[in-house]
């Protein structure tokens, strides 16, 4: 994953519009981008990062916290997760800034690095063009390549 754009380090972020649906299960957050059908799993620390970012913590504040708590790899992983969330269109700069909250994510006591897992199996169905992307004989929601013999 490319590093986070410098211009975003001190910027508060928010879910990038109504197409972004995040479901919090405590130990894991599942985020779906309805614009492209891709969805993501944010387990453990990653879920904490999402919550803090959604609350208005800046990427820089989270990276500083990570730098104080663990090895350089942890800070790099935090930066990579934030960069990934922005690159996937899940987070964007806040339109209305909020007072800077204190991060709640806890880095100490875990050796696992934060990860962002992505899934594509819903994308084809969500994006099935109602005119062209369906099998002529069967129709949506069966994609052409899913039809035996197609």
């Amino acid at each position: 994953m490319a590093p986070l754009d410098n211009s975003l380090r001190e910027v508060q972020l928010e879910a990038a519009g109504p197409d972004i649906v995040a479901e919090d299960f405590g130990g894991e957050i599942v985020v779906l981008n309805l614009a492209n059908g891709r969805y993501f799993s944010l387990p453990g620390i990653s879920a904490g990062l999402w919550r803090d970012l959604a609350e208005g913590c800046t990427p820089a504040s989270l990276m500083e916290l990570a730098a104080a708590a663990g090895p350089a790899a942890l800070t790099e992983a935090v930066e990579s997760i934030v960069a990934g969330l922005v690159a996937e269109g899940l987070l964007r700069p806040r339109t209305v800034p909020v007072a800077n909250p204190a991060p709640k994510v806890v880095f100490a006591g875990t050796e696992a690095l934060p990860v962002l897992e992505s899934y594509d199996d819903m994308a084809d169905l969500i994006l099935a063009d109602p005119i062209h992307d369906v099998d002529e004989n069967i129709g949506w929601p069966v994609k052409k390549e899913d039809v035996p013999g197609a």
Partner: peptide, 16 residues
């Protein structure tokens, strides 16, 4: 885990 069930259930339940 519940999120695993969601990931199995969501694609067809939403996109159908």
């Amino acid at each position: 885990p519940a999120p695993l069930a969601l990931r199995a259930f969501m694609p067809s339940n939403v996109a159908q």
